[in-house]
Every structure is written in structure tokens, then in C-alpha cells.
């Protein structure tokens, strides 16, 4: 079973929930798919080793064949090519590897070569937790191919807990779309609620069953709770707006390590998710 931990808004507690859930359960595979800012290991401190480099085919222009017609640059939606009077410049970091520039070039002047997007890493096999993550190169725009490559390393023999990037753009859809269940972490603040509803649209469109973790419960108002009540969306867990939890977070300590009573609560949440999955409920 693959459980994605997502949220619309950044900083609502995805990593907190993912890390603490994984540590509470044990025997799971934790994956950090927030490849632009993989933070899980800040709390785990595991020794990581390289799994593989992930590459994307980027164009290289053959100046002998290029007639400077500019079709390649016109075609590129990501503006990875600039057709100048003297030559075509390539910006590999903006390239999404679609290969379209090569298709529209009538002169055969576009060759493809692999560009490195980032790296996949895994905790050593003797670690206390099975953990993998992707790290996107700084300046690189295409997170999704790196995420898809990381997903190929999911250990299917055990449950997977997958920390998602924030927002509701392609990288997030790649994570949620490949999950069996999605935990949406939110907080009951105007921003939290606004972005929660965006995330909700995404999980509904992807037809992935979902439930809510209300983080910093007690902060803000009751708008998320009322909304979930009216829509029949399960609130799986409430993490209070507790100074001790915040302090442990600031020290890079997963709070279940110092507040072990929370392990049971996280484990209870996971059992509830399992039960929802088995009963086939959870989607609206």
C-alpha cells in the first residue's frame, strides 16, 4: 500500500507527518519525493548512498546543419531554446526532455544528449529505516521525471509512506496519482484552507481516496473542520498547536521519539487508512 502525504500549502506539516508516521510504524519504506527540498533526512540523519543519477534528454544544436530558422525555439513551451541571429542557445535547466525541438527541426540539426537532472539516494541497508529520496539539481525545472524515477525504487513488499512536494502542480500529481491513498495535511487558517481546497480538487480528479490530518489544531478557526464535516471527509488525526512539538521540530527531532504516546496515534491512523482501503470507501 502506497500512502502519499500531500498538502496544497507549503509548511503545513507534510514532512512532520511522513517522518513521524514512518517511525511510528516501523517496517515501512519512507520516500522523500519533495525533490526540490527533500527535508525528511534532516529529521532522520541517516547515512545515504547513491542509487543512480537521473538524466533527461536535452538538445544539442549542430551548427553545421542549423539554418537559424528558429522553429525549435518557437516550439519550446519551456523556453529552453533561444534562436539568435548567430546561433541557437540551449538552456538545459529549463528543458523538460519532450524531444519536440528535434521533431520540428527539418534540417536534422538537433541531437539529444543526456543531461543530469538530479540524484536518487537511499539509506544504507543496515539502517533502522528503509528510506529513499530524490534530490533535484539546483536550477533544474523538471522535478517530475526525477520523482517518477524514484517511484521505480518503491519497495512493494512493505507499505510505502511518500512525502510529496507542496502545491498542486505536475510533481505533486505524479506523487498522488501513483498512490493508493492520500493524506492531506492542512491547518485551519485562511491560507491553509484555501490551498487545502486546491489539493482536494487534485485528489478528486485523480480518484485517489483521501483523508485529512489537521496540524497545529487549535490555531486559527474551525473552517477546515466544518468543511470536512459537511463533505463527509474523514479527519484522520489532529496534531495540536503544541510548543513542545514545535521545539522538537526546530531541533530536528521527530516528535514521536520524545513523545512516544504519539506512536500509537500515528499507528492508529494507519490502521484507519487500511480499514478505509479494505472497505473501498474514502472517495467522494
Amino acid at each position: 500500500m502506497k500512502v502519499a502525504i500531500a498538502s496544497g500549502k507549503g509548511g503545513t506539516g507534510k514532512t512532520t507527518v511522513a517522518v513521524n508516521l514512518a517511525l511510528s510504524l516501523g517496517g515501512v519504506h519512507l520516500l522523500d519525493c519533495d525533490v526540490e527540498e527533500p527535508n525528511c533526512n534532516l529529521f532522520l540523519g541517516l547515512e545515504l548512498e547513491k542509487l543512480e543519477y537521473v538524466t533527461c534528454q536535452v538538445p544539442e544544436i549542430d551548427p553545421e546543419k542549423c539554418t537559424l530558422c528558429g522553429k525549435c525555439a518557437d516550439f519550446c513551451r519551456y523556453n529552453a531554446l533561444a534562436a539568435l541571429p548567430s546561433r541557437v542557445l540551449v538552456f538545459p535547466a529549463l528543458c523538460h526532455g519532450c524531444g519536440g525541438c528535434g521533431l520540428v527541426c527539418t534540417e536534422g540539426a538537433v541531437r539529444e544528449k543526456p543531461g543530469i537532472l538530479g540524484i536518487l539516494e537511499s539509506a544504507r541497508s543496515d539502517s533502522s529505516l528503509e528510506f529513499s529520496r530524490g534530490v533535484l539539481n539546483v536550477g533544474e525545472a523538471a522535478a517530475t521525471p526525477l520523482i517518477r524515477a524514484l517511484q521505480r525504487h518503491i519497495d512493494n513488499s512493505r507499505p510505502a509512506i511518500i512525502d510529496s512536494p507542496p502545491g498542486v502542480a505536475c510533481p505533486v500529481l505524479a506523487v498522488i496519482g501513483a498512490a493508493d491513498y492520500c493524506v492531506l495535511v492542512t491547518e485551519s487558517t485562511p491560507f491553509g484552507f484555501h490551498d487545502f481546497r486546491l489539493a482536494l480538487e487534485a485528489v478528486k480528479a485523480l480518484k485517489v481516496p483521501f483523508g485529512v490530518v489537521l496540524n497545529r489544531d487549535g490555531l486559527g478557526d474551525s473552517r477546515v473542520e466544518e468543511f470536512c464535516g459537511a463533505k463527509g471527509i474523514p479527519i484522520l488525526l489532529r496534531i495540536p498547536d503544541d510548543r513542545r512539538i514545535a521545539q522538537l521540530y526546530s531541533e530536528g527531532i521527530p516528535f514521536v521519539e520524545e513523545m512516544p504516546e504519539w506512536k500509537e496515534k500515528f499507528a492508529g491512523m494507519f490502521s484507519a487508512i487500511r480499514a478505509i482501503m479494505e472497505s473501498g470507501e474514502g472517495t467522494e
Binding site: A73, R77, Y78, N79, A80, A82, A83, L84, P85, F91, L94, A141
Partner: peptide, 16 residues
Amino acid sequence: EASGGSGIRAAEAIVN
């Protein structure tokens, strides 16, 4: 109008 690489499009327009 570009979601990314707007500077590239702008610079290309200046050059042209």
C-alpha cells in the same frame, strides 16, 4: 506569457 524562461523570451525579442 511564459510560465518559465520569460527572460529568455524577452532577451530574444530584444536581440531580434
